[in-house]
């Protein structure tokens, strides 16, 4: 375990946006697979079409699981990012409240 804990909040925020986008793309792929599954059943009436539809549904299910996990990880990291920002802000408030700063050292709080 590293002794150093550091976070580049803006970089992390950018990566989170990318991760959310990846999750969204996979969700769309899942929807496409689901729609294709029904298309297979329409195209091939009978038992073959029913089996093919079930295969397409499996595809959609697998993709949805990956998409959901991507979204969950992104949401967790998003919460972590917010927590880092909140913790830093709270520390700053506490430090300012702990005693008067020298003249000229006032820090603007967001």
């Amino acid at each position: 375990m590293s002794d150093l804990i550091s976070v580049q909040l803006d970089v992390l925020g950018g990566l989170l946006a990318d991760l959310r986008a990846l999750g969204g793309e996979l969700a769309e792929e899942g929807q496409l697979a689901s729609a294709s599954a029904w298309s297979l059943q329409r195209a091939v009436a009978g038992p073959v079409g029913e089996e093919a539809q079930r295969v397409g549904s499996q595809w959609a299910g697998a993709l949805a699981a990956l998409s959901a996990r991507t979204g969950t990880v992104a949401a967790t990291l998003d919460a972590a990012l917010a927590a880092y920002q909140a913790a830093d802000l709270e520390l700053a408030r506490q430090l300012q409240a702990s005693g008067p700063l020298r003249h000229g050292m006032l820090v603007a709080m967001p």
């Binding site: 590293s2 804990i5 550091s6 976070v7 970089v11 990880v73 990291l77």
Partner: peptide, 15 residues
């Protein structure tokens, strides 16, 4: 994400 420049520490490793 795994680079130290972006996020180092236990939480970064878990992520």
């Amino acid at each position: 994400l795994g680079t130290a420049e972006c996020w180092s520490g236990p939480a970064g490793s878990v992520a």
